[in-house]
């Protein structure tokens, strides 16, 4: 490697070092460049383009450019629209509730309570578990005849008959949302906790001297100080939730009757069950546009109100 022979540290020769550095940097980038270009950048571009074709699964099928044909069909596809509605409800519900729950937990973990260590460990475990295992676990928990949740509800006389949470039209989506919150809380909690710990203590001391209540300290110090962290983690949560697949696929496979058919599940079925690659890619394109518009809107509003 050419890097080996050079002894001058970059800082010491800033002007002459620049072009050399670039060459050196490119060498270091090389081994990563090929796989990334071939298997990430190129597929992505091709994937976006596929949305404008009638590509189908199968080895020797002709593919034609059909412009906005797929999008026109999507516009009149009621199932697709309802899947998008479900996707939006799921994304917003999980992201918002997750954030509220995680903020509460982070605030508690930031105090000097007992059980903090246990709570912190427990809060992180869901993050490391395979989504498939999480789904299996919740299927056991919510099972209509053998699940403890039904048992507890019946003992408390909140319901007189077992509820099939994941199989009932009215409870499937809320049940899936609860699991989504459970899974996503760790990342959000840890991020918010890190944000909380970096807030300058003296701000609170000054506020306490001025006689500010805990509530007003929360509104006037904690939230404004956390703003960037909150915007960052909720944006990421929104993207992850909107694009999530495995958890719901194993929990309900989109059922019952499509009540939990997230856009990703819908697109997956379209591509790999019915073989309509072009159509599925067009759905992916629509998802990207929605995410970008949504994020753009959210970030612009947030960042503007900060100024």
């Amino acid at each position: 490697m050419s890097a080996a022979t050079r002894t001058v540290a970059p800082k010491q020769a800033p002007k002459r070092g620049r072009p050399k550095q670039n060459r050196e940097a490119i060498f270091l980038f090389l081994p990563a460049l090929l796989p990334v270009l071939l298997l990430s950048v190129y597929p992505l571009i091709r994937g976006i383009a596929l949305g404008f074709t009638d590509a189908r699964a199968g080895l020797n099928v002709d593919t034609n450019f059909i412009g906005f044909g797929n999008f026109g069909k999507l516009l009149h596809n009621d199932l697709f629209w309802s899947s998008f509605k479900i996707g939006l409800i799921w994304t917003l519900a999980v992201t918002i509730l997750q954030f509220v729950a995680a903020l509460g937990l982070a605030l508690l973990l930031n105090t000097n309570l007992r059980f903090r260590g246990v709570a912190r460990t427990l809060a992180l475990i869901p993050w490391a578990m395979p989504p498939v295992v999480v789904a299996i676990m919740w299927r056991l928990l919510l099972h209509p005849t053998n699940g403890p949740v039904n048992e507890i509800l019946q003992n408390l006389h909140l319901t007189d008959h077992p509820i099939n949470f994941l199989g009932d039209f009215s409870t499937a989506l809320p049940a899936v949302i609860v699991v989504g919150i459970w899974v996503g809380m760790p990342m959000t909690t840890v991020t918010l906790l890190a944000g909380l710990q970096s807030i300058d203590r003296s701000l609170y001391e000054a506020a306490a001297v001025d006689g500010a209540s805990a509530w007003s300290q929360f509104w006037n110090i904690t939230l404004p100080q956390l703003k960037t962290v909150i915007v960052a983690i909720t944006s990421l949560d929104m993207i992850w939730n909107f694009n999530s697949f495995g958890l719901v696929y194993v929990l309900t496979a989109g059922g019952p009757g499509g009540k939990t058919m997230l856009p990703m599940l819908f697109a997956y079925n379209e591509a790999f069950r019915y073989g309509n690659f072009g159509m599925a890619a067009a759905m992916g394109d629509v998802m990207v546009v929605i995410i970008i518009v949504f994020l753009g809107f959210y970030l612009r509003n947030r960042l503007r109100s900060e100024a």
């Binding site: 990430s40 990703m264 591509a271």
Partner: peptide, 12 residues
């Protein structure tokens, strides 16, 4: 992070 994997997985 932003792009849904469905767009990548079909061409892959």
């Amino acid at each position: 992070q932003v792009f849904p994997v469905i767009l990548i997985v079909i061409p892959l």
